[in-house]
């Protein structure tokens, strides 16, 4: 006799599962901040300091192992001084300063589209002379130029920084960042919370020292070093 078990399609109720996943999703959406695109991954050294990095009004200086410097700026919560607007303002300031010292044929000319492109870039680090050409490239090429692995010449030019008359580009940028119309950023820089140096643990200290010396020349004596959290048992 043939015995055939009747095949029944089992129906699993996924409603509960769906509830759980939606809850998890909401949790992740609310608690998270997006990773910002950075030219290179930097592993910061660990410290026991529990002070958190401020989210607003912060200038981050990224120092790679090969002593290239990138900078990013976080604006105020107030949308008049949003990050994008701050970047655009800083760019205009720095270009105006730069052009003062350049002969006519080397002056940087930027269109509004160039400035908007710069405004939407999280982290920047290239010599100013390459700026206007960089702004006109498609997005992937812009990222490639900022990547220190693909372009060893990336990074903001810096030197010992003792020449106050002819400031190096790093100092020009820092001055432009300091002299924005956003009063909260200037205040943050003054009380030492506005500048954060994010350097890789394996960077030679001499490289970081050059950055610190330049900041000291600009009388920005107080700043913070970004570190990862290390727990220390008592």
């Amino acid at each position: 006799m043939k015995v055939t078990t009747e095949k029944k399609k089992p129906f699993i109720d996924m409603t509960a599962m769906s509830d759980v996943t939606v809850l998890l999703l909401t949790f992740f959406m609310l608690t998270s901040t997006f990773l910002q695109k950075e030219p290179t991954t930097v592993i910061t050294p660990a410290s026991v300091s529990e002070e958190k990095v401020p989210e607003q009004n912060l200038i981050t200086l990224l120092v790679t192992k090969d002593s290239q410097i990138f900078m990013s700026i976080a604006g105020d919560r107030d949308s008049t001084y949003s990050s994008d607007k701050m970047r655009e303002e800083v760019l205009k300031n720095v270009v105006a300063e730069y052009n003062k010292k350049q002969p006519n044929d080397k002056k940087i000319q930027l269109t509004n589209a160039d400035i908007a492109t710069f405004g939407s870039t999280h982290m920047f680090g290239l010599p100013l002379a390459q700026l206007s050409a960089w702004c006109k490239l498609p997005a992937e090429k812009r990222d490639a130029l900022l990547d220190p692995v693909k372009n060893p010449k990336a990074g903001i030019p810096i030197d010992m920084g003792k020449d106050v008359e002819n400031r190096n580009e790093f100092q020009q940028w820092m001055l432009a960042l300091y002299n924005t119309s956003n009063p909260n950023l200037a205040k943050a820089v003054k009380n030492g919370k506005g500048i954060a140096i994010k350097a890789d643990a394996a960077t030679p200290y001499s490289v970081v020292q050059v950055v610190m010396d330049n900041l000291q020349t600009l009388k920005m004596n107080k700043f913070t070093l970004m570190t990862a959290l290390k727990t220390e048992e008592d």
Partner: peptide
């Protein structure tokens, strides 16, 4: 990230 605050002497 955490931060470690330092202040250098003025130049």
């Amino acid at each position: 990230s955490q931060t470690l605050q330092i202040s250098l002497p003025s130049n």
